[in-house]
């Protein structure tokens, strides 16, 4: 049942809807959490919602995760303060893409087992580090408001990566487990 899903083509209707729904969910929650600006940082908010692209990536594959993170962040930024920061959107996309790579490491039938949940937590931490490093250091490289590498590390990278890693590592396995239980109850779902 689950094995069949990975062999479907990339832009199948299910994947398109998954990307749309993931984006909408991520944006809807971010609008609330964007108000939580961490003191002393720039645009870094405490967001339990980071688990959404991670979960979509883990269950539906890296591309769905990337789109949910990228577009969801872009739309929520547009709603909260009307702006578009492409590098932060790509960073958020990576939060969804990296857990999706578990698809190639783990057997599909294992993702709702203990092994899968552990993998989800580990991938969430790796994704937070890589994704936020990309966003923070591109701010420095292209000079969007940041002029020294130390500044990028202390006011952007560390606060964003640590909070996202904690939120992601706790909530993503919970979501995966809850989804696994819900899917088992509905045999029709592929």
């Amino acid at each position: 049942m689950l094995v069949e899903m990975s062999s479907r083509k990339l832009l199948s209707t299910t994947n398109i809807v998954a990307m749309g729904v993931g984006t909408a969910l991520y944006a809807a929650f971010n609008v609330f959490f964007n108000i939580f600006q961490l003191p002393g940082t720039q645009l870094v908010a405490l967001r339990p919602s980071v688990c959404i692209p991670m979960f979509f990536g883990f269950v539906f594959g890296p591309v769905v995760g990337f789109v949910a993170g990228f577009l969801g962040n872009a739309i929520s930024d547009a709603i909260s303060w009307g702006g578009f920061w492409w590098n932060w959107d790509v960073g958020n996309g990576l939060l969804g893409l990296i857990p999706g790579l578990a698809m190639y490491i783990l057997k599909r039938e294992d993702i709702f087992e203990k092994k899968g949940l552990l993998m989800a937590a580990i991938m969430a931490i790796i994704a937070s580090i890589i994704g936020m490093a990309f966003a923070a250091y591109t701010d420095y490289i292209f000079g969007y408001g940041i002029s020294t590498i130390e500044e990028a590390t202390t006011i952007l990278f560390i606060p964003a990566a640590v909070t996202d890693a904690i939120n992601g590592a706790i909530l993503t396995p919970i979501l995966v487990a809850a989804y696994g239980a819900a899917v088992r109850g509905r045999a029709r779902r592929a």
């Binding site: 209707t13 809807v17 729904v21 339990p48 919602s49 688990c51 919970i174 819900a182 779902r189 592929a190």
Partner: peptide, 29 residues
């Protein structure tokens, strides 16, 4: 802040119900 914190317990149930509706939306389309 407390009112926003009340959103946190909603993340899991809303995400799961939305994820399950994906297949219905895709079928309808």
């Amino acid at each position: 802040i407390a009112r926003i914190l009340s959103v946190v317990p909603l993340v899991v149930p809303v995400t799961i119900s939305a994820t399950l509706s994906i297949y219905d939306i895709a079928d309808a389309m």
